[in-house]
Design a binder for these strands. Structure first.
Lengths: 126, 126, 126, 126
DNA sequence: GTGGTCTAGACCACC
DNA sequence: GTGGTCTAGACCACA
């Protein structure tokens, strides 16, 4: 996994984990990778993964069983959707709207670009 | 002016200045606020504004007349449009698409929210 | 049985066993639950119960007959009282006093809460 | 400052800071020690203090001004009182009551010990 | 094996 | 100067 510079690695890992859960690759209630395993897989320091897990635990998206490991919460999908939707609608979307407006990008151009994106990502919809 | 945590203050100020120019509130070729004035107005350290001006100068959007002050470039609007459009299409838009997809936000919901945004921002279009 | 995060599980089980003995639910000199049974009942790993028994054995509160099982010591009640009283007066009480002082909780409030606690726990005193 | 073994250092530092604020030694709204300074003073690693500050920030007890430092929140005293009172009433007090009951410690003995504690801590009340 | 904490030291962006 | 992040490596308690 490659990381971007603009955001801290441990938050990028958090987003990655949330996506795995949203896409049902990691089942709610199930055990998730151990700190050391995930660190090895992503080629980062275990402390960095630890930070990610602490962050997600503070949001109740994952929880810990002592000596056993971390687990995705049963309602993890809902919590992630709430958390990301809030972040998106409150912070990101207004910025996008402002930029569309300032750059005079038409909604139809936006739409056609989105359809192009979809056709690459999720061919099943076509 | 309030600043967000996720992005550095000097870049947020740079965006603010670009918007003023795009919206024709600060005319191309005209003198822009002095470092000291703008710092006082935005309640930030003058060094921070200085950094913003240096950043914009490196992009040729503003220039400096020694001892007099900073001025918006004649072609500032074009430069800003190029700069922001590139940033938007390359970096921001893919993220937005991914989020729309993950959160299952429909394009029609996006569109109606955008129209609502427009009606608040620019009543002249209605 | 639910366990708290702040203290290790095997010590919480030790306290649980001591309470059973103090409350005369497990008679001194009598056989106590097998490691396997108690582990099943509390839904923990047998190793964890094993550790509890070893800990209590090191304090002479329980002892082991090889091949038969664990037994509460004849003088278990006295030992537990000495052990817990020491821990309480030396460690816990000073912390409680400090908190009462910092939070400005009056002794009368403390007392009324204690009476409420007693009326729930041990109705025979009323 | 000396630390106990049973609780992690960064949480002990958090309690220490809260006490400073409760005792009005660190004024609400005022700047608190920088990460490095406090680390040097307490003779711990800066990362450890950093963790404390992150923890307190997550509870809104302190906040950060970028590049300037950490500040105690204006309503820090209230937040600390709420936080500690909740922790005390929900977790610690029931344990104390149970112990008083199990060890058959009389409330009058508790009270006299508390008065002795007060006379050492806060002579002004006598 | 699991997580949790701490240290040491580095580098960075930012004010 | 400030905080923020990351790495490396160590040690510990716990299951």
């Amino acid at each position: 996994m490659e990381f971007k510079d603009k955001q801290s690695i441990y938050l990028q890992i958090a987003d990655f984990i949330c996506e795995q859960i949203l896409l049902a690759k990691w089942p709610p209630g199930g055990r998730i990778s151990s700190v050391r395993d995930l660190a090895g897989e992503l080629e980062v320091n275990p402390n960095t993964v630890m930070r990610t897990y602490e962050f997600l635990q503070s949001k109740d998206i994952v929880f810990n069983k002592r000596g056993i490991g971390y687990f995705a919460a049963e309602n993890a999908v809902d919590l992630i959707l709430i958390y990301r939707k809030e972040r998106f609608l409150e912070n990101e979307l207004p910025e996008v709207f402002k930029t569309l407006y300032l750059l005079k990008i038409d909604i139809s151009e936006f739409q056609s670009r989105y359809e192009h994106f979809l056709s690459k990502t999720d061919p099943s919809t076509h």
